[in-house]
Design a protein around this nucleic acid. Structure first.
Lengths: 230, 230
DNA sequence: TTGTTATTTAGAAGTAGTTTAAATTAATAT
DNA sequence: ATATTAATTTAAACTACTTCTAAATAACAA
């Protein structure tokens, strides 16, 4: 029986290349190509493919796309194909529901194998990803086993205020002053925010603030002042 | 003598509105409108207006735009007009070379005054901005007096590596492991990075990483895992 | 009324980030 | 060859963040 595959990447050349490579194999059938998340969700909803081969880091997609696809189609399996392989990227992809992960510069056989194996229900990782997984001590089965809370993050008004101020570089004491609170309170908000976001450091809070457009990096200027001035 | 003004905002309605308001005054002459940074730089280069009235937070612009305009035209004076007024935003705008600052929902008289006063060489702040300046204890004259280092930030290869890992949420110890260094070394890199960027906390390093596209927020997933799992 | 969530405050222990100081290596210019 | 600078490395002291535990008030819904 054929493995029905949808290819998702913003780049036309990449989509053509992947389609050309995979079309050579009789057990693989490309049922569609998507340039962005919206089109991809339509395709998955309408055709219920077995496998989506996606570069979730390409413009127009994100790791959240994977999570949403899995909600749309119960039996869908996802192969991620990207140009980078940092530990965080892999971990987040697995959390979001990626089953298999390969790199764009991996061996062509690995691309084909990943789709075939994933279609059969196995996981597949190319050599470079396997190396990264070992180096970073990532356990894909453990992460896949985690139950992700599918409800969207629900932050209170106060928490959103605190997130913005954190992202703008304020300390707990500075936030406390601006919000007329005790530093203890701000600390509690910070703790609750991290819990709701599933993270455990300031860097991730800032990343969340930018990703969810609570702050724009465009308003930050990065130029050292000459200390001679004054 | 006329004050030659260029209006810069991505929004057509806003540009029309500002042009309509300012055109009523005989001492003000609108010499052009710009939808994005590129067009704005062209206009400033070709027409050397006295004043640019800009929403540097609108899509297609950023606080850096102001800095670049000041380099293009020596006598140019800049009036910022935005919808927000957080302390960091104002401070960064002033650092970048903004002379006057008003809000989009301020009094119409204040819009006109800001352009006229700025054209004459004064500074002007609308009521809401003045309130923010007082609340945050900002001294516009002091910030304007600072000599900004105009040379672009120059980070070493090692520093860029460290920035990426910081933005991904790694601690100094984790970075040390990944880069085969002592935590002390990573600490020094962090210090030098902050110095070069003109900042003093992790949040700002993350903001820089995103702004300069060293990392994409799209690869970060924010969903708490159900602690029941395992 | 009861139960839930948001908001507020507090103390303490442990971890991580920030500042300051200093030395070594590598690259470059004079 | 030597002086100068930038990059990289190590160290210690201090400040801020993170985790944990505990509790009180307010707003709101069942």
């Amino acid at each position: 029986m054929d493995i029905q595959v949808v290819i998702a990447d913003s780049n036309h050349i990449v989509r053509c290349g992947l389609t050309a490579i995979l079309s050579n194999f009789p057990d693989i059938r490309i049922v569609g190509e998507a340039v962005n998340e919206e089109k991809l969700k339509e395709l998955v909803f309408n055709f219920s493919p077995r496998v989506v081969l996606i570069d979730f880091l390409a413009p127009g997609f994100s790791v959240d796309t994977v999570q949403e696809l899995k909600r749309i189609s119960e039996n869908l399996r996802v192969v991620a194909i990207t140009t980078e392989q940092s530990g965080v990227t892999i971990v987040n992809a697995l959390k979001a529901g990626v089953d298999s992960y390969i790199k764009k510069d991996c061996d062509i056989h690995e691309i084909v194998d990943s789709v075939q194996e994933t279609g059969k229900g196995s996981k597949f990782f190319c050599g470079q990803i396997l190396e990264a997984i070992r180096r970073e001590s990532i356990d894909p089965d453990e992460i896949n086993g985690l139950e992700i809370n599918c409800e969207p993050v629900s932050l209170s008004r106060r928490e959103l205020e605190v997130i913005k101020l954190i992202a703008e570089g304020n300390t707990n004491n500075q936030i406390a002053e601006k919000l007329y609170l005790s530093a203890h309170t701000v600390n509690t908000h910070r703790k609750n925010i991290m819990q709701k976001l599933g993270v455990n450091n300031t860097a991730s809070i800032v990343m969340y603030a930018v990703k969810s457009q609570l702050v724009s990096p465009n308003k930050f200027l990065f130029s050292p002042v000459n200390s001679a001035a004054g």
